[in-house]
Amino acid sequence: MGKSNSKLKPEVVEELTRKTYFTEKEVQQWYKGFIKDCPSGQLDAAGFQKIYKQFFPFGDPTKFATFVFNVFDENKDGRIEFSEFIQALSVTSRGTLDEKLRWAFKLYDLDNDGYITRNEMLDIVDAIYQMVGNTVELPEEENTPEKRVDRIFAMMDKNADGKLTLQEFQEGSKADPSIVQALSLYDGLV
Score class of each variant (00 low, 15 high):
residue 2 G to I: 00
residue 2 G to M: 06
residue 5 N to T: 15
residue 5 N to G: 15
residue 7 K to V: 02
residue 7 K to Q: 03
residue 7 K to F: 04
residue 9 K to H: 05
residue 9 K to A: 05
residue 11 E to L: 01
residue 14 E to Y: 13
residue 14 E to P: 15
residue 14 E to R: 06
residue 14 E to I: 10
residue 16 L to S: 15
residue 16 L to F: 08
residue 17 T to A: 12
residue 18 R to N: 02
residue 19 K to I: 05
residue 20 T to K: 12
residue 22 F to C: 13
residue 23 T to G: 10
residue 23 T to E: 12
residue 24 E to H: 14
residue 25 K to L: 11
residue 26 E to F: 02
residue 27 V to C: 15
residue 29 Q to L: 15
residue 30 W to M: 00
residue 30 W to K: 00
residue 35 I to H: 14
residue 37 D to E: 02
residue 37 D to L: 14
residue 42 Q to E: 10
residue 43 L to M: 06
residue 43 L to Y: 09
residue 44 D to G: 06
residue 45 A to I: 00
residue 47 G to K: 11
residue 48 F to V: 15
residue 48 F to I: 12
residue 49 Q to I: 00
residue 49 Q to M: 00
residue 50 K to S: 02
residue 53 K to R: 14
residue 53 K to E: 08
residue 54 Q to H: 06
residue 54 Q to W: 01
residue 54 Q to G: 04
residue 56 F to L: 10
residue 57 P to Y: 01
residue 58 F to V: 08
residue 60 D to K: 01
residue 63 K to G: 02
residue 64 F to V: 10
residue 68 V to W: 12
residue 80 I to V: 08
residue 80 I to Y: 09
residue 81 E to T: 11
residue 82 F to W: 03
residue 86 I to N: 12
residue 87 Q to V: 12
residue 94 R to Q: 12
residue 96 T to E: 09
residue 96 T to N: 12
residue 97 L to P: 11
residue 103 W to E: 01
residue 104 A to E: 09
residue 105 F to I: 02
residue 106 K to L: 11
residue 107 L to Q: 01
residue 109 D to M: 00
residue 111 D to N: 11
residue 114 G to T: 01
residue 115 Y to V: 10
residue 116 I to K: 11
residue 117 T to Y: 08
residue 122 L to E: 15
residue 123 D to R: 02
residue 131 M to T: 13
residue 131 M to K: 05
residue 131 M to N: 10
residue 133 G to V: 05
residue 134 N to R: 02
residue 135 T to W: 00
residue 136 V to M: 05
residue 138 L to A: 02
residue 139 P to W: 15
residue 140 E to C: 02
residue 141 E to K: 12
residue 143 N to R: 06
residue 144 T to M: 07
residue 145 P to N: 10
residue 145 P to M: 03
residue 146 E to W: 06
residue 146 E to L: 07
residue 147 K to I: 12
residue 149 V to I: 15
residue 149 V to Y: 02
residue 149 V to A: 09
residue 149 V to F: 08
residue 152 I to F: 08
residue 154 A to V: 09
residue 154 A to M: 03
residue 156 M to F: 14
residue 157 D to W: 00
residue 158 K to Y: 08
residue 158 K to W: 10
residue 159 N to K: 14
residue 160 A to D: 07
residue 160 A to Y: 04
residue 162 G to I: 11
residue 162 G to Y: 15
residue 162 G to N: 01
residue 166 L to T: 12
residue 167 Q to E: 09
residue 171 E to W: 01
residue 171 E to M: 01
residue 175 A to K: 04
residue 176 D to E: 10
residue 177 P to F: 04
residue 177 P to Q: 04
residue 180 V to A: 10
residue 181 Q to N: 11
residue 182 A to M: 02
residue 183 L to T: 12
residue 186 Y to I: 01
residue 186 Y to A: 05
residue 189 L to I: 11
residue 189 L to R: 05
